[in-house]
Design a binder for these strands. Structure first.
Length: 471
RNA sequence: GUCCCCAUCGUCUAGUCGGCCUAGGACAUCGCCCUUUCACGGCGACAACAGGGGUUCGAAUCCCCUUGGGGAUGCCA
């Protein structure tokens, strides 16, 4: 059997973490089994669907590298087909028109809740044959079986049984004639020959309705696999409240694609104790049975850790390209060689590319201010002779290389009977503006002799102009 | 309220059909080491089988109940 999976988002927002993981699972399962992966946009809710959301979802998928073999199909372009199916159901007596208004249904629900009954449409029009009320636009409802039960053989949750008594006659076409979700999913999954439906377990409750619908249409239900939800750090369903939940926000932050995929795949799925998975490994190891049953919580710290791991391994040229783009505009023309050096110095020190860009400005631009705390400590009158002497020596260094620079500073410290810890920090603050920069010798090497000397001069005049505090 | 699902460290999880689990790994946190800073790295510490009943020679693993959490209960998907 040719495996066919699908990802079927509704375009009512960006591609969020949960959706991305569902897509990843579907994609992995299709690819791992030599099957096809279909993308379908479920845009039947015209009120909430937007083109911007479609674009955002497509972009997110592309960034993640989740390529699809067919689609994107848009449900709004398949209304003729849905109407055909609805008509067929009507003709066969498997569906009927219901003339209840939204207000009536609302009142019915309220009364049932007040009487501690389960809210359910009372099927008053199920066998109606009289004269329909005038001026009411009907909805079309599916005649759900009245007894028996639906059994779902879920690939991750196991067997789930739901009594038909719990299910009411769901609306398959709105009063304006447009089809609703449960109908369109069923028609599409059948028409597109979907064999495995992998989706979030918030859909578990829809599954028995859909199975009943499929059976009424003479189809064979696909195999279902409901992945647990991803929750925010407060245990609630992920939403904007929890900070960045869109995949593209992480792309912007400078999370590597590989890190994102790795994080996503480990959220609710595991293979023993293994933490790191390349895409190839995921494809080789992914199985639906490895998916967890319980919901998991999104943890951005672990994502960042993973990102750092991938940053260490990433291609230097690609990182340099990205770094240049993220630098302030005036600095983007920095020499390639220098960008590559900066990447090497920074890749182990940062958790994201945006952080790398922020902390790398100092290589390309003289400090515009000194970090107050370390400046107060190391850029005082006491440092003046050190900086002045070192500036002279560094300016005369014939070979501007890390080893020579290191030797120059160390020799100076030796001669003066100073510890390196007395000499290094003032130079660091003077040149970098702050106290947390990469190894001093390599940093100076990368910044370049001319700029270093210039920066030391600036720091020297800064100190000379300091108003000596009354002591 | 009703229905469905879930339940191991703060978080992600390991835990092949009950014994090798005085519960392992990773992130986070905290120490120590490395180090001119910050990181990286190394070593170590802290930290969990929700509770109660069973079944069994033996249960984190099986059953039941309770509790807790999530989802659904839409002319949203």
């Amino acid at each position: 059997m040719q495996v066919r999976t699908r990802f079927a988002p509704s375009p009512t927002g960006y591609l969020h973490i949960g959706g991305a993981r569902t897509a990843l699972f579907s994609w992995l399962f299709a690819r791992a089994n030599g099957g096809s992966f279909v993308l379908r946009i479920e845009d039947t809710d015209k009120e909430r669907s937007t083109q911007a959301s479609v674009d955002a979802i497509l972009e997110g998928m592309e960034w993640l590298g989740l390529d699809y073999d067919e689609g994107p199909f848009y449900q709004t372009q398949r209304f003729d087909r849905y109407n055909e199916v609805i008509q067929k159901l009507l003709d066969e007596g498997k569906a009927y028109r219901c003339y209840c208004s939204k207000e009536e249904l609302e009142a019915m629900r309220e009364e049932q809740v007040a009487n501690k009954q389960r809210p359910q449409y009372d099927r008053r029009y199920r066998d109606f044959s009289g004269e329909p009320p005038a001026g009411v636009a009907a909805v079309i409802r599916f005649k759900n079986p009245l007894d028996g039960a639906v059994v779902i053989a879920d690939q991750v949750l196991g067997q789930i049984t739901i009594s038909n008594e719990e299910l009411d006659d769901l609306i398959i076409a709105r009063s304006d004639g447009t089809p609703t979700y449960n109908l369109t999913v069923v028609v599409d999954d059948m028409d597109m020959n979907i064999t495995h439906v992998i989706r979030g377990d918030d859909h578990i409750n829809n599954t028995p309705r859909q199975i009943n619908l499929i059976k009424a249409l003479g189809g064979i239900p696909p195999i279902y696999a409901h992945a647990p939800m991803i929750l925010g750090d407060d245990g609630k369903r992920m939403s904007k409240r929890h900070g960045a939940v869109s995949v593209s926000a992480y792309a912007e932050e400078g999370i590597l694609r590989e890190a994102m995929l790795n994080y996503l795949v480990r959220l609710g799925w595991s293979h023993g104790d293994q933490e790191m998975f390349s895409t190839a490994e995921m494809l080789a190891l992914f199985k639906l049975t490895g998916i967890n049953k319980s919901a998991s919580t999104f943890d951005v710290d672990k994502l960042h850790w993973l990102n750092q791991q991938y940053l260490k391994e990433a291609d230097a040229n690609e990182l340099a390209d990205d770094l240049a783009k993220r630098l302030p505009e005036a600095l983007q023309a920095a020499p390639r060689e220098m960008l590559l050096q900066v990447v090497e110095l920074q890749r182990e020190r940062v958790k994201s590319l945006s952080e790398m860009a922020e902390t790398s400005v100092l290589f390309f631009q003289d400090p515009t201010a000194y970090d107050p705390k370390p400046a107060k400590k190391f850029l005082g009158k006491a440092s003046l002779p050190i900086l002045t002497d070192l500036k002279e020596r560094l300016a005369q260094l014939a070979h501007w290389q890390a080893e020579a620079i290191q030797g120059c500073i160390a020799d100076y410290a030796d001669e003066k009977g100073l510890k390196f810890g007395k000499v290094g920090p003032p130079v660091r603050i003077a040149v970098c503006g702050n106290a947390n920069s990469p190894a001093l010798d390599q940093t100076l090497t990368t910044i370049g002799q001319e700029a270093v000397v210039r920066r030391l001069n600036t720091a020297i005049s800064y100190i000379e102009n300091l108003v000596e505090p009354a002591s």
